[in-house]
Amino acid sequence: MKTLKEMLAEARQVIPEEGPADLQRRLASGEPVTVIDVRDPDEFRDGHIEAASNISRGFLEFRVASAVPDPKTPVVLYCQTGLRSMLAAKALHELGYEKVINLQGGYQKWAQSGLPTVKEATLSTDQIQRYSRHFLLNQVGDKGQRRLLRGKVLLIGAGGLGSPTALYLAAAGVGTLGLMDGDVVDITNLQRQVLHTTADIGKPKVESGTRTLKALNPDVNVIPLPTRITVDNVMDVIKDYDLVVDGSDNFETRYLVNDACYLAGKRNVHGSIFQFEGMATVFAPNEGPCYRCLYPTPPPPGLVPS
């Protein structure tokens, strides 16, 4: 017979512990690491570390193989305070997982350190049906769908590029879409700008855009921004979003959005077109060149129509 205290002491002999800051560093470095929350599903739903999968303690040995196919991958386990996960870590160690680490102080210490947590909203029956085809894709799944629903994307331009982008993002359940455009709908827009209809001619594009997107998916919070993006408003507008999609129509805006995204550390998804050809690029600050790196100056007037 062993006491609980003895069991924990025995586990500590073989399982290293790391604090919240160490785990944060591992996650930020991009190195392969699997994080497993071993608490019960209701505890997980109330708040967890975003990178974590939930396999409650009782199912751990049965389900770990699908979460961690390679037993050499580092695995970080956590529970509420770090005790249940310490015993769970020892069980995994005995199953042959070589690098099992216990998060010292558990979720409680992580949250108290001010590190980011996410809360799981319960999906409604309608949402489960609406996104059922996403759940079949391993790359999205239930976890990915919740992430999409938490996602905030700013669309600059509700025109030829902004229209299809907005429709697909709304259909996919991206939870917040900022729609920024200072123009009104013109009859010449309608052959390609599929957010707007004939009845919308003369109305602000963000108005018809918002209506179309809400009709497609009521889950989406559409924020209409009926103004042009300028040097005075750009930093304030982009700060609330995870991602910026630049579907604008002129070089001045392209450089402005590029510079602002670089300064704010936001990824800029750039799309641009000319007749039957187009360019799609993701500019990720400090992970590759920016738009200005590729094209330091705008083209001479007259050469490139927008």
Binding site: D246, D249, P299
Partner: peptide
């Protein structure tokens, strides 16, 4: 060779 493009309307 790719030129800079800005069109999106």
């Amino acid at each position: 060779v790719f030129p800079p493009l800005a069109g999106g309307r």
